[in-house]
Amino acid sequence: MKKQDEGFTLIELLIVIVILGILATVVVFSVRGITDDGQQNACDTDYRTLEVAVEAYYAQYGSAGGDPSDADLVAAGLIRTGTSENYTVTNGSISAVSPGDC
């Protein structure tokens, strides 16, 4: 064996490191978008859950039960306490706790 056949050159190693860095950058930016979509989907799901609970409350109690609040929905067994951190139900309407989050 000759001495020049024993390993990789510095240039070859640098090229591999640059390619790995480019791949890592692409992965980081693509994952960042996924987490933003996840937060929006969680907000949409919270809203739909409360919307269905309010409709079920009206179906069960009618207008005689009055307009439900969070406590009324919990008492009726339609949601659990702390179901949504993003929305609250007051007088039968759903509103965002902090509008900037959802």
Rank of each mutant, 00 (worst) to 15 (best):
M1D: 11
G92S: 10
P68Y: 00
I34Y: 12
G100V: 03
T88K: 13
I79F: 01
D44R: 13
V52H: 09
K3E: 10
E55L: 14
S93H: 11
A75R: 06
A71L: 09
S69M: 01
K2L: 09
G38N: 12
E12D: 11
A75W: 02
F8K: 14
V97C: 08
D70M: 15
E85W: 02
G38Q: 11
V27Y: 04
N91G: 12
V54C: 13
E12M: 02
L13V: 14
N41C: 01
I79H: 01
T45M: 10
T90P: 05
I34C: 03
D37A: 10
P68N: 08
N86T: 09
Y47T: 02
D70L: 01
K2V: 08
E85T: 08
E51Q: 15
G33L: 06
T49A: 08
A24G: 11
T88V: 15
D72T: 02
G62E: 08
V18G: 10
T81E: 15
G21C: 06
P99H: 04
V16N: 00
D44K: 10
T90M: 08
L20E: 01
D72W: 01
I19A: 12
D37N: 13
V26M: 03
A24Q: 07
S93Y: 09
P99T: 13
Q40G: 01
I94H: 03
E55S: 14
A76T: 04
V74D: 01
S93W: 08
